[in-house]
Design a protein around this nucleic acid. Structure first.
Lengths: 221, 221
DNA sequence: GGAGGATATGAAGGATTCTTCAGCTTGAGG
DNA sequence: CCTCAAGCTGAAGAATCCTTCATATCCTCC
């Protein structure tokens, strides 16, 4: 997530001692908790500090202002999700499309549901500020990873991979988000997850090019 | 959207004279514009009033507080979208699945892109408050409409329509939202739209039950 | 034309919030 | 043990913001 970070959102300084790192974590955790319990509207610097068990001034030693805090929180999170996705893409390089999709959706879903509270809190916080740069950066990163993966598929080729890839990603991101937003109950949630895999697969099957000779021969590149 | 409206969000009074209606529209419009230009963070009652060319007190004659204003704005909008979708569902009653999907996605996409600025503004504002009741209500309404539509399909039946329907809707809602959020350029945007139809169709094709005798005979109910 | 309700005004009160800074505490290295 | 940088504190200033209400203006209908 180290791309085009609006300068005014830079962190103020990095922790050098152990206790500072602890403090920083406490601040992040407090932010998440407050975001969850009271919503972004009531997220104030004072409350964050209080919840984190530190003083307001302490927070201002690490962040120039409130927005920078939220920005950093989102960056941290998106970075982790992106890493997970990238790992999956590497692992599935050269695999059949079916496995790719299953793994991709699974990874993204897992990353989002692992701490669904955090996910929800961040979905809410993100609106407060210019997260576009973060999202865009995240999008590009994942785009590249999945693109490379699909390109290496053992059993399929696509005419216009760019649009196909974007579509699949947009659908996955969106469906997950939408599912969260509609607050679907566990069983429905789980059902939608499985159906999402089916849907992506059906789509890719529909738009793939007819098999070529080398693919039928089982070539891996 | 007339379901479980949190009482504290009720409008204060309805306009009875023509000029009052004009004022109200101006307030709504001003809210949208400010949401767009400055984001929800900087949406203040004073600014809304100023932009609308009225006094702050005027707004407080129609809304008990700021939240009620945003709530009403969202309600208004979702209601319109729901109406559009319901109309399409009625029109496509008994049609082939392919046409249904095309019409459904088209209608939703159109409703969202007709004034994409407004859509974006509301996507941003909605997080500020308890819009869950609105979204849930909207979801149920659309769910019912599309469910009834798909059930009447001339050329397909589904084993578990509930989950299939939810999946399709979640995917459509989400994909549209995601496309907006990622701020895709026009061509990509258009591409995703078309691909979304392909995707939904491919999915429905994959999960439909094998054709029955009466369907092959062309029965419509 | 005039009475009374519907609308509109906008200064001011009350409540928060963000951010700073001068001074204090803690920890690490010599 | 001592020194100095790193880390922490929290009262207070400055800036908004939300909301009210007493007052003024506009419509409508008799």
């Amino acid at each position: 997530m180290d791309a085009v970070v609006p300068t005014h959102l830079n962190a103020r300084k990095r922790p050098r001692q152990a206790r500072a790192a602890v403090t920083l974590d406490a601040i992040f955790e407090a932010t998440i908790q407050l975001l969850l319990s009271d919503g972004p509207e009531r997220l104030t610097t004072t409350r964050v500090a209080e919840r984190a068990g530190v003083s307001v001034g302490t927070m201002y030693q690490y962040f120039p202002h409130k927005q920078a805090l939220i920005y950093a929180l989102n960056g941290r999170y998106l970075d982790k999700v992106a890493q997970d996705v990238e790992a999956v893409c590497r692992a599935q390089h050269g695999a059949p499309v079916a496995e790719m999709v299953d793994a991709l959706v699974g990874a993204y879903w897992k990353a989002k549901t692992a701490r669904s509270d955090v996910t929800r809190a961040l979905y809410r916080s993100a609106v407060e500020l210019d997260t576009e740069s973060l999202i865009e950066s995240f999008g590009r990163r994942v785009d590249a990873a999945t693109s490379a993966m699909f390109e290496s598929a053992a059993d399929a080729r696509f005419a216009d991979l760019a649009i196909v890839n974007t579509t699949v990603l947009t659908a996955i991101f969106g469906t997950v988000r939408s599912a969260f937003e509609r607050n679907l109950q566990a069983p429905l949630m789980c059902g939608v997850h499985k159906q999402l895999v089916v849907m992506c697969l059906a789509y890719l099957e529909a738009v793939r090019l007819p098999a070529t000779a080398d693919m039928r021969a089982g070539a891996q590149t």
